[in-house]
Every structure is written in structure tokens, then in C-alpha cells.
Simulated scan of single mutants.
Amino acid sequence: MGAEKVKVDLNLSNDLIPLIEDLGLSKSLNDNITISIAIALFTSKSVSLARAAEIAEMDLADFMILLKNKNIPWNEYTEDEFRLDQIVLKDFKDELGENKND
């Protein structure tokens, strides 16, 4: 987490500042912006979950809880994973059925 920091001069609309502060991500505006950027990078699939947590300067578990509290899924369950699970469950059920007939 010891990444080098660069100071950036950022011009924000006065209307935007209260919205960022109301996100409830952190106490400081700077941290709210940093965490918001980390979330945006993660949700756009630009960075991994672990990298987004590093960018947000948060523990992975805390970052996952933050995403959950914001209703942002942190784990994708793909169609392929679903099909594989269906195959495994069918095989398991078949095995159980075979054992009952023994």
C-alpha cells in the first residue's frame, strides 16, 4: 500500500462536493474521491478487486464490505461457472441415486 502519491489540482463544481461528501465513504473529501475512483476502476473492470482495495487504501475485507453496503457486486458468477456447477450437482445426485439402489 505504500504507493507514491502525486498531488493533483482538481476543480470540482460546488454542486458536486456535497454529493461526494454524502457518499459516506470516508470523513475526508480527498479519501471519498480516492475511494470513488477505486470503485469506478473496479466496476469498469479496469482493475482487480485486490488492486481497487489498494487504491482505496483499504483492507480487502473492508473494501468488500463497502461494496456490499453500496449494493455493488464484488464477485461475478459467470454463465460458464453456473453450467459447471449444474454438471457437478447432476453427477452428485446421480451418485446418490446409485448408492440408494445398492
Rank of each mutant, 00 (worst) to 15 (best):
L89S: 09
L67Y: 00
K45D: 13
D31L: 00
K90G: 07
M64Q: 11
L60Q: 13
L89A: 10
A61P: 01
A61R: 09
W74G: 15
Y77F: 13
S26V: 03
N71K: 15
L60F: 07
I87W: 03
F42I: 09
I65R: 15
A52Q: 05
L67V: 02
E79N: 13
L29Y: 06
S46P: 00
A40C: 07
A40T: 08
A40D: 09
D59P: 04
S36C: 07
L66Y: 02
I72T: 08
I20K: 02
W74A: 13
A40H: 06
I35Y: 00
A56R: 06
S48V: 03
V88C: 01
K70R: 10
D91G: 08
L29W: 06
L89C: 02
V88Y: 03
K68F: 11
K93H: 05
T34C: 09
K27C: 06
S48K: 05
I72F: 03
N32Q: 06
M64G: 07
E54H: 01
I20Y: 00
R83T: 14
L89M: 08
P73W: 07
M58S: 05
I65H: 12
A53G: 07
I87D: 12
D62A: 10
N75S: 14
S48F: 00
D31P: 00
L49P: 00
D31Y: 00
L66W: 01
S28C: 06
K93Q: 09
A52M: 04
K45E: 13
A40N: 09
L84E: 15
V88G: 00
F42G: 11
D94M: 05
I72D: 04
S28H: 04
F42T: 09
E54C: 02
E21V: 08
A56K: 05
E76G: 09
K70Q: 05
P73S: 15
N69A: 11
S26P: 01
F42E: 10
I87S: 11
E21R: 12
L29G: 10
L89E: 12
D85G: 15
M64H: 03
W74E: 11
N30L: 05
E79Q: 14
N32E: 06
W74D: 12
E21M: 12
M64L: 08
A56P: 02
R51N: 12
